[in-house]
Design a protein around this nucleic acid. Structure first.
Ligand SMILES: [Mn+2]
Ligand SMILES: [Mn+2]
Ligand SMILES: [Zn+2]
Ligand SMILES: [Zn+2]
Lengths: 130, 130
DNA sequence: TACTTATTAATAATAACTACTATTAACTTT
DNA sequence: AAAGTTAATAGTAGTTATTATTAATAAGTA
């Protein structure tokens, strides 16, 4: 079985197209937005397949799932570490080139949780909504 | 970042109880969790009233709405600036006393968005899920 | 008081997933 | 290659968390 080094998932035709199309976008689409894009290439694809595979691809580490933008999840094919800014009006997400680092002094915060990582995102208003 | 002045909403009995109960908790409850707590004091309250008023109270600046913890929103009556850590297994949210500041060098990020503020939250595994 | 507006409880409706099922495709063993 | 086994898919049903509607009630105002 030809499995990829990232996670153990098989890259089916549907998954390949979802992944390729997502990687070409800078827009952080929602599942349904990506469904309409992918449907141009695979007209018979089911929306459930898109949802299922966006989940599978993010679990396997191929893509990023952005949960904090409105009530819909958004997806990102750009695996470079980078920061996002989200529009509080329309929930669109834009990349910010700079990778924001957490200052040293916050490396050992007092908590009984086992710290794995952190998330920084900015929020504001996009040019379109201004 | 910026504290809004409290909006003008009428504090009905239901709203007072929701607010008081929420402020006594350190647990960042979901709407339905808070519904069961409030029901002990106001047994006839409707769950829709809890949802509606959590929205109203957060819009008016009385409470904080935490959107990035799983698929349910969580609410926080603690209006002191503070940071959260979220358990990636059970989505519970815990306070971290320290207020994390965005380093100076990130004050001038290159973006065409109108930056309003930023969010930092940590994630990890809570003692219960370990 | 009479009128107007806001809020409520109860319930219906919605949005965004998520699970199920029968079918097909891919891999493994014979 | 054939048969057996497992994984993935399309289509659709079901679920969950929230949001809208509605008729009744409470609060604010003239
Ligand atoms: Mn991005
Ligand atoms: Mn808190
Ligand atoms: Zn916008
Ligand atoms: Zn936990």
């Amino acid at each position: 079985m030809k499995k990829d080094k990232l996670g153990a998932i098989r890259l089916t035709e549907q998954r390949k197209v979802i992944l390729e199309e997502l990687k070409q976008l800078k827009t952080h689409p929602t599942a349904d937005e990506l469904y309409f894009i992918v449907k141009k290439i695979l007209p018979k694809i089911s929306i459930a397949t898109v949802y299922r595979n966006l989940e599978a691809l993010s679990a396997a580490g191929y893509i990023i799932k952005i949960k904090s933008a409105g009530n819909q999840k958004r997806f990102d094919g750009n695996m470079q570490e980078h920061t996002h800014i989200r529009c509080i009006k329309c929930n669109k997400v834009r990349d910010i080139e700079d990778k924001i680092e957490l200052p040293e002094k916050y490396k050992n915060l007092k908590t009984d949780f086992n710290i794995i990582g952190f998330n920084i995102d900015l929020y504001g208003i996009c040019p379109n909504c201004l």
